[in-house]
């Protein structure tokens, strides 16, 4: 009980949110913003693994998000609804309640496999050259989707709303909010465990000195594979969840603009700080919403804020520290933090 205080706290928080949403005490708009916050947390913390902890420069995160979004959407529509291309539902529509997380994970796996497109080149190139490869992968994914007419091509793909409706017909729960809460928590939890283990710190060693890492016994190729697949898989997860919020996706969403947005969150929060990525995802999403009345001018104000941030605090909000470093008292709540294996009685 004591050891998992952070986990219980998060569970309580999630239940509270679900209860509030279930009783319609939050406007649909506020719920939407909350869901986007969750998705942005997944995106920024998973990209931080590559850009922050491993020190590579990936600018194609939206590409992996697209893979996850399309694969899980197509699976869900094909399995649980009747669609003009895929025909009648393969399984009983009500089984979506149980199978939804599995189709999401299938999307994540597909995205992780797409991550290999970057992981293999990363054995030989790094830095700017690898950045260009990530950019290329982003374009490859987007253009591929645009050219597959069966899934709507550039017009986009829809029908996921029906899947959620089927789920809500079984139990009236805000399903998509539930799964966003679960997977956001899971992502941060997995990443936290990864980067605080000696195993995961191998990727920090790669960032600091790749040659020394390889010579001192770190299998750099295996670690790069693990990092890229984990990161892109999580982006795929975020994509799958994103697709089911509005029930409509189109390739235009997953462009380099989206990747840039995620990168901005990573740099805003601090490279190599997980809590920084979480904080900045919350902050960035809220700023976007607060500045919505400015309309187009928003895209002048936000970059301006970024320029100011880079001038005054180039290391981001948190630098490479965690919240528990800044406020040590928080360790009481998150005792599964760094060093607990060592300190456990």
């Amino acid at each position: 009980m004591r050891r998992h205080r952070g986990l219980w706290l998060y569970a309580a928080f999630s239940l509270a949110i679900l209860w509030v949403c279930g009783h319609e005490m939050l406007t649909a708009y506020a719920q939407l913003v909350l869901m986007f916050i969750g998705i942005n947390i997944i995106l920024s913390s998973s990209l931080n693994l590559i850009n922050g902890y491993m020190g590579e420069f990936s600018c194609g995160h939206a590409g992996f998000m697209a893979v996850g979004a399309y694969v899980s959407s197509i699976l869900n529509v094909w399995l649980f609804t009747s669609h003009k291309v895929f025909g009648p539902p393969v399984l009983s529509p009500s089984s979506a309640v149980y199978l939804f997380p599995l189709t999401l994970l299938a999307g994540a796996c597909a995205a992780a496999l797409a991550g290999l497109l970057v992981a293999f080149p990363s054995f030989r190139t790094r830095g700017d050259y690898l950045a260009i490869i990530t950019l290329a992968v982003n374009y490859i994914v987007k253009s591929s989707v645009e050219n597959i007419q069966a899934i709507g091509g550039a017009r986009g793909f829809m029908g996921m709303r029906k899947v959620i409706e089927e789920m809500e017909a079984v139990w009236r729960i805000p399903w998509i909010m539930l799964w966003i809460l679960v997977f956001t928590g899971l992502t941060v939890w997995v990443l936290h465990r990864f980067v605080s283990s000696s195993y995961g710190k191998g990727i920090v060693a790669i960032r600091d000195d790749e040659i020394a890492a390889e010579i001192m016994g770190v299998d750099t190729r295996r670690m790069k594979l693990a990092a890229f697949m984990l990161s892109s898989g999580m982006a795929g997860l975020a994509g799958g969840l994103f697709a089911h919020i509005l029930g409509y996706i189109n390739p235009g969403t997953f462009t380099i603009m989206k990747s840039t947005e995620v990168m901005v969150m990573v740099y805003l929060g601090g490279m190599g700080s997980l809590s920084g990525s979480v904080l900045s995802a919350v902050l960035f999403t809220l700023i976007l919403e607060v500045l919505r009345p400015l309309q187009v001018i928003k895209w002048v104000v936000i970059p301006l804020l970024l320029i100011l941030l880079m001038l005054w605090r180039p290391e981001g909000i948190m630098g490479d520290r965690e919240l528990t470093d800044v406020f040590p008292r928080l360790r009481r709540w998150f005792s599964a933090d760094k060093g607990d294996v060592h300190g456990a009685p």
Binding site: K201, V204, D208, D209, A213, M216, D219
Partner: peptide, 27 residues
């Protein structure tokens, strides 16, 4: 060639990376 953003302690832990004997799932 030390890993300069990691602590001295972590430098010594990571040098044992190849014989950690556990994988991502265990983590």
């Amino acid at each position: 060639r030390l890993w300069n953003t990691l602590s001295v302690f972590d430098n010594l832990c990571i040098a044992q990376h190849f014989r950690l004997g556990y994988g991502l799932g265990d983590v």
